[in-house]
């Protein structure tokens, strides 16, 4: 268990900036997801932590000790690669024992550790196989075993579920979480899949273009986004962002209420929306519509997505125009220029 701290961490390749001044600190024993679109610098950040790349500037600490210039083998950090990177010339057993042998751990200790991980990950029957004869799920378990076997200070996961079939992915996600609850090793989990991040992580760090936009719990990210990027990235579908006179308002799809059914709270926005089509998702409906009236710039008629939390057929039909309201409590406001979050007090409602 360990606390990872970065301070003004930067990495650039020539003129391309991959990580642009990251300040962050993990909580001891947490599972921190690093979430961002491809090219956001999340993988580079992880490689910097692992020591596979050296930072261009800035500082990296584990438990307060600087680790810049320390070679990867001395950092006691384990990494699970996207491709799993199992050594094809060795059996599963030799793969798992490899980190222990490289560190010259006594052989009875090796045996004990091997038994421990094979039991946790239920891979005893795979030990004599070659990695080429494993399925995706099995390879993932073996890669996890190899990472866990030496009880590292820090775990790094690079999209470990992305090469699994969709069917077993959610199951593997649950197993990963369970495993983390048992070991409580501080984990950095890089992913571009928000379902994975929201479902798995204690906290999420949202990155884009080398910059950290927000670090927070899944709930904070969802209900309290720090800026328009997080608001437009988290949630499926994400927050609707609408331009007001002096600010941007963010509305979650489920926060559009029909004016006739409006809760008796202060209203932030009233819109006339023409419904274009409806989408049935089982437990809920998505309503795709165009704002016809209610925004300061009349010529702009942005598309919005609403959500109805019911399985029954909605009363509203396509090509119909309805009045929708958003309560002030539910709305988020952002600066028009910087995109950063504004406190409600500063916003004059149009």
């Amino acid at each position: 268990m360990a606390i990872l701290t970065t301070h003004a961490l930067k990495k650039h390749y020539g003129r391309i900036i991959a990580v642009d001044g990251v300040d962050m600190e993990t909580v001891d024993g947490e599972l921190l997801a690093v979430l961002g679109p491809s090219g956001s610098g999340k993988t580079t950040l992880m490689r910097l932590v692992a020591g596979l790349e050296e930072p261009s500037s800035g500082k990296l600490y584990i438990d307060g000790h600087p680790i810049m210039g320390v070679p990867p083998r001395k950092r006691n950090i384990a990494m699970v690669f996207q491709s799993y990177a199992l050594y094809p010339n060795m059996t599963v057993r030799d793969n798992i024992l490899f980190p222990l042998r490289a560190r010259k751990i006594a052989s009875d200790e090796q045996k004990r550790q091997l038994e421990w991980v094979t039991e946790i990950l239920e891979i005893a029957d795979l030990l004599d196989r070659r990695p080429t004869r494993l399925s995706g799920g099995q390879s993932q378990r073996v890669a996890l075993a190899r990472a866990m076997v030496r009880t590292p200070d820090l775990f790094l996961f690079d999209e470990p579920l992305s090469s699994l079939d969709a069917q077993i992915r959610s199951q593997a996600r649950g197993e990963l979480r369970e495993l983390h609850d048992r070991t409580r090793i501080t984990t950095l989990y890089v992913t571009h899949d928000q379902t994975e991040a929201l479902g798995l992580a204690d906290r999420i760090m949202v990155m884009e273009k080398g910059i950290v936009h927000q670090i927070g719990t899944p709930q904070q990210l969802y209900y309290d986004p720090a800026d328009t990027f997080v608001a437009g990235f988290i949630g499926d579908p994400p927050m609707n962002l609408l331009q007001l006179e002096n600010a941007i308002i963010g509305v979650r799809p489920e926060h559009f209420h029909l004016a006739s059914e409006a809760p008796g709270k202060e209203i932030a926005l009233e819109l006339e929306i023409e419904v274009e089509h409806l989408e049935f998702l089982g437990a809920e409906w998505l309503i795709y519509g165009v704002v016809r009236r209610g925004l300061p710039q009349q010529h702009q008629q942005p598309r919005v997505i609403g959500r109805l939390r019911q399985a029954a057929m909605p009363t509203i039909g396509t090509r119909e125009t309805h009045h929708f309201v958003v309560t002030k409590e539910d709305a988020c406001f952002f600066d028009s220029n910087t995109g950063s979050r504004l406190s409600e007090a500063k916003v004059a409602i149009a």
Binding site: G51, L52, R73, M79, A85, F98, A102
Partner: peptide, 21 residues
Amino acid sequence: PRQLDEAALLDGCTRFQAFWK
């Protein structure tokens, strides 16, 4: 794949050991 060298480096090998093993 380069990841194999990198996995070996993280598993406690020097560059030469990663190459050799």
